[in-house]
Design a protein around this nucleic acid. Sequence first.
DNA 1: CCCCCCCC
Length: 293
Amino acid sequence: MEIQDRIIPISALNPYQHRWAIKARVTAKGDIRRYNNARGDGKVFSFDLLDSDGEIRATCFNAVLDRFYEIIEVGKVYLISKGSLKPAQKNFNHLKNEWKIFLEATSTIDLCPDEDASIPSQQFSFRPISEIEIAENNSIIDVIGIVTAVNPSVSIMRKNGMETQRRILNLKDQSGRSVELTLWGDFCNREGQNLQEMVDSGIFPVLAVKAGKVNDFSGKSIGTISSTQLFINLDSSEAQSLRIWFDRGGKNTTSQSISRDINPGGPKNEIRKTVSQIKDEGLGDQINQTGLL
DNA sequence: CCCCCCCC
């Protein structure tokens, strides 16, 4: 039987299904990770696959990685066959599939050169910002909003002593809430730089965040992780609807932030006084007595 | 068989 005749939907894959093939688009490609553990040295990479009704993550190691890493390109469609299906671990893999594919020496991956319009380029499950307020800490979510403010990139010393870049921006949507999005590492000077230039010149772009991580330090915020993807001015109905909402008045409506202030001590503290003014007016006395100051 | 994802 030809490979083409064995094509099944991704949603039909399971460990008991042998001699399968899938036809799927690569929606994300991870970097090569090197590891060293009790089993020895190794390298691994993963990529995400989407067909017209399902998604799954594929992973390969070492020699198999050497065969496939260069072939895999985001956006392209492939015919993939053979490999073992293992349970997906939800703490590492947010895709809507209870299985993942481990590619093996007998696996095949062949590029389908013809464009297949039946397979979308990405699949999103956007959550309104108001819902992120009640999302579980560390959960992985998709969100779309208008970028209303972008802070500069700053250098952050991580707890492990490694330096990295951080850039915080603000997202607002039609739910009446806004949220902080923290970009890390390369996102800061790639998409982050681009977004800053747009906002600086008065353009407030739509930003779609695929696979952002919910953080619950001082309210709820979202941070990028290695599998996060950012899409500026995405071509989609959700983006279009946000654009229209913002341009027709959403721009001037106030949103309640579900995060701490982007500028601590900024707009919220309208009345600013010097320490001597505070002492003169006895403003701190009551607080001092409660032991809060 | 990897699996870290950061700062206050």
